[in-house]
Design a binder for these strands. Structure first.
Ligand code: MN
Ligand code: MN
Ligand code: ZN
Ligand code: ZN
Lengths: 144, 144
DNA sequence: AATCTCTTTTGAATTGTTCTAAAGTGTTGA
DNA sequence: TCAACACTTTAGAACAATTCAAAAGAGATT
C-alpha cells in the first residue's frame, strides 16, 4: 500500500486560531487571516508580495511588514519552510514535510516533488564541528 | 588510478587576456584584472561585493557596476556558474564542473563537494513541455 | 476596566542589484 | 598612425526585496 500524506482538507476559523495559538503566537486578526489563506487548501508556495496581494483581494487589510513578520514567525514555529531557489526573493512553503522541488525559472513557479521520489546517497560528512542541517534539491526546469 | 581534475596552477597575464578574448569579450583592463583574481588559484566562490573589495585591495579600480557586468558576462560565457544558496545575494563559482555544495549558513561560506560524491537517483520527469536544466544540491550545515 | 505585553502599522532605512547616459577605451582599416 | 566606430566603464540614480523604528492598537490577565 502507498503511504499517502494527510492533507488538511478544510480548516475552520476555530482550528486556524487554535493552530496559531498552538504555535505559541497570539491569534490576532492578521495572523488568523493569513493562516486561513495559507492552510485552507492544498500545500502551497508563496512570496511575501504574493501573499500580500492575495490578502488584499480577500479583503483583509494587512501591512507588508506584518506579512514578513508573520511568514518568519510561522517559519520559526515550524508551520512553514523557506525554500531558496532564487537569489532575489524568498519563497515560503506550507509543505513542511521532507520533499524537493521543480523550479520553473521562466515564471518562478515551484512544484513539489514528493520526499520518497528522489534518491540522495553518499552525502559527505561535514567539516569538523559541523552537522548537516538539511539537504535541499532543486530541479531547475525550462521549456523543452 | 583516480581522475584528478586539472587545476589552473598559475595563469599569466597573457593567458588571462587570451581567456577573456576566447570568451568573446574584449580584454579590457577591468576584465583582465578580475579574471586574474578569479582564476589565478584554486576554484572559488565570490559575491559581487566580496570581489569588489578584493579588487580594491589589489589596487585595481573597478566600479561595482562593472563587477556585476563582468560576473554576468563571464557566467554567460561559461567561465562562471551562479550558485543559489541564499535568497539575499548571488554567489558566483569558478568551478564550472558538475558538483555540489556545503553551505555554512552561519557565515555564508561555500565548500565544494566533488561531482562524483553524492548520488542522485530517480529525478522525476518534468511536466509536459519542460526539460531539466540542472539539478542543484545544497547541503546546509551548521555548528554541531 | 486597568494594566501589561505583544502586535501592527507607516514610512524611513538598508541591502543587493540594475539602469542610464555620458565619458573612456579597444579595435579596425585607411 | 590615427580616425572612426563599437563596445565598456563609470557615477549616481533607480529599483526591488526586506528590515527597522517608533508610535498606536489590540490580546491577555487581573
Ligand atoms: Mn543575475
Ligand atoms: Mn535585495
Ligand atoms: Zn514544496
Ligand atoms: Zn562550487
Amino acid at each position: 500500500m502507498s503511504v499517502t500524506r494527510k492533507k488538511p482538507v478544510k480548516a475552520s476559523a476555530e482550528s486556524t486560531s487554535a493552530k496559531v495559538r498552538a504555535a505559541g503566537l497570539r491569534p490576532t486578526r492578521q495572523r488568523i487571516a493569513l493562516a486561513g489563506l495559507l492552510f485552507r487548501d492544498e500545500d502551497r508556495h508563496v512570496t511575501a508580495e504574493a501573499l500580500h496581494e492575495e490578502a488584499a483581494k480577500a479583503g483583509v487589510r494587512v501591512s507588508l511588514a506584518t506579512i514578513y513578520n508573520t511568514l518568519h514567525q510561522f517559519t520559526q514555529a515550524g508551520l512553514l519552510n523557506e525554500v531558496v531557489v532564487d537569489s532575489g526573493r524568498a519563497y515560503f512553503d506550507t509543505n513542511i514535510g521532507d520533499h524537493q522541488h521543480f523550479y520553473v525559472e521562466e515564471n518562478g513557479a515551484l512544484i513539489d516533488i514528493p520526499g520518497e521520489t528522489i534518491g540522495i546517497s553518499n552525502v559527505p560528512t561535514p567539516p569538523k564541528g559541523m552537522a548537516v542541517d538539511r539537504v535541499d534539491v532543486v530541479v531547475r526546469i525550462k521549456r523543452a
